[in-house]
């Protein structure tokens, strides 16, 4: 079991090493002839206009807030689902989840009514 988690750590380390190695090998094998034109940011072939980091409408920060709420909810739902079919827990486990999901649905309905779910 502990070996399993060691393997996961190994995945991260070896994955990063592999990325470094391939980019390194490719840099050794490939030519390098930098030029002014080549280093230009691609903007359909014309000279770039204005700063690259244009102001992007960050209007979906409300989506991000809702996302955090629902993502945390799923984190709670997974352990619930694992023990769900345990016969000892009976019908109570369903009722509890009706309450939990119900509260979140009310929140979603409120956000919907306030217009937070409309992509503008």
């Amino acid at each position: 079991m502990n070996l399993d988690y060691a393997i996961l750590a190994g995945f991260v380390v070896l994955g990063a090493l592999f990325v470094g190695a391939t980019v390194g090998v490719s840099n050794v094998l490939s030519p390098s002839k930098p030029s002014e034109r080549k280093a230009q940011i691609y903007e359909c072939g014309s000279d770039p206009v204005g700063p690259p980091w244009v102001q992007f409408r960050i209007g979906y920060y409300v989506y991000a807030l809702l996302f955090v709420v629902f993502d945390i909810e799923t984190v709670f739902l997974y352990p619930w689902a694992v023990i769900f079919s345990d016969p000892d827990l009976g019908i109570v486990i369903v009722l509890e989840m009706f309450v939990f999901v119900g509260v979140l649905v009310l929140g979603l309905l409120y956000a919907w009514k306030e217009g937070a779910l409309t992509w503008r």
């Binding site: 980019v23 490719s26 840099n27 490939s30 930098p34 691609y42």
Partner: peptide, 12 residues
């Protein structure tokens, strides 16, 4: 081909 292509890092 990808391995031997020039790796361009754009300015900025």
């Amino acid at each position: 081909k990808l391995l031997t292509k020039e790796d361009i890092t754009p300015r900025g």
